[in-house]
């Protein structure tokens, strides 16, 4: 038997993600047919071609690689897309994937208003057009003490904000998620947050180059459960700051109210910077469980780093602030 070492495997022989996904989709679909006892062998090839074409359309053609990317191993696609906190689509971790199909992400428009020279409501395509998309592999730390490594596709929020020319009054940025109970069953739930979900950043945080507007994941269009078609990613803050399915960006003079902070002010602060030294009433934040790999790989938690490991880039934003008070 010939056993090849990994170095001898040509990169062309490794299954690309799109092909892998197409095969998976195909197997899933065929599995369903087989169960129903309706799987004629002849239709299988066309099925596979159709799937792979569909997947091709979802892929971004050219992606710049960002120097901000971590070299840690990304969390598998299936985990990133099936373990989500997106209460608009249900409070269970697997609910968002289950109800993702209800969200219509095309057409999509985003309103940019408040303290800007060029307020207005813009089609998503027009918003994205001038920006070069890049892949940025970021750590994501949830306040519930799990973490992932996510290969986002997107561009800096600051580049977008500058296009609409913030005025001197712009001190904060407020963000809003779509509010449409018809598309988002979680918004009809008995136990729900105040809708629309709202988040905010201080202007200097919003303009920081690490702050990302993401439109993709693993080189493909962002799945709905991850906040399609466009979401915020602030890698040094707890995940709930990274608001999903954005429809409004408003520049303000005052600090805007934010959803989880309204819900439980003693638990969720406005800043919500990842901080192992500030415990949360529900979870100690000293450690985190990195999701990914096999069952045995994430049994033991790892240390959480201040600002989720981005202290070098962002700690200066909070100089002189008491982070125990401004948690």
């Amino acid at each position: 038997m010939l056993i090849r070492s990994s170095s001898k495997i040509k990169s062309s022989e490794i299954t690309s993600h799109s092909v892998y996904q197409a095969r998976r989709d195909f197997m899933r679909d065929m599995g369903g047919l087989a169960l129903a006892g309706l799987a004629p062998a002849a239709c299988s090839s066309t099925e596979a071609e159709g799937q792979s074409k569909k997947t091709q359309e979802k892929r971004f053609a050219h992606l710049e690689r960002s120097p901000f990317s971590t070299d840690e191993t990304p969390t598998p696609h299936s985990k990133i897309t099936h373990y989500n906190n997106f209460y608009e689509l249900g409070t269970g971790k697997s609910d968002p994937a289950k109800y993702a199909h209800r969200l219509r992400t095309q057409p999509w428009s985003v309103t940019i208003d408040g303290a800007v020279e060029k307020p207005g409501t813009y089609q998503l395509e027009d918003i994205l057009k001038p920006h070069t998309l890049e892949e940025r592999i970021y750590r994501l730390r949830c306040v519930e003490t799990w973490s992932m490594v996510v290969p986002w596709v997107g561009f800096s929020l600051g580049d977008l904000l500058k296009r609409f020319q913030p005025t001197s009054k712009a001190k904060f940025v407020a963000f809003e998620t779509l509010h449409d109970p018809e598309q988002m069953p979680g918004q009809r739930s008995l136990f729900s947050l105040q809708w629309p979900y709202a988040e905010g950043l201080r202007m200097d945080e919003a303009l920081h180059p690490l702050t990302l507007l993401a439109v993709g994941l693993y080189g493909e269009v962002l799945p709905s459960q991850n906040g399609a078609p466009i979401r915020l990613v602030v890698p040094w803050k707890y995940g709930f700051k990274s608001i999903k399915s954005l429809v409004r960006i408003t520049l303000l003079e005052e600090q805007p109210p934010t959803t989880w902070h309204l819900m439980a002010p003693d638990e969720y602060g406005f800043y919500a910077n990842v901080n192992p030294d500030v415990s949360h009433p529900r979870w100690s934040q000293a450690k985190e469980r990195r999701l990914g790999g096999s069952f045995f790989e994430n049994l033991i938690k790892q240390e959480t780093l201040p600002f989720n490991g981005y202290a070098e880039q962002v700690a200066h934003l909070y100089q002189g602030m008491d982070l125990h008070q401004h948690f």
Partner: peptide, 13 residues
Amino acid sequence: QALMDQLGANPVE
């Protein structure tokens, strides 16, 4: 499920 890695994204949870 643990042996077959079928416990979801966060098996410990």
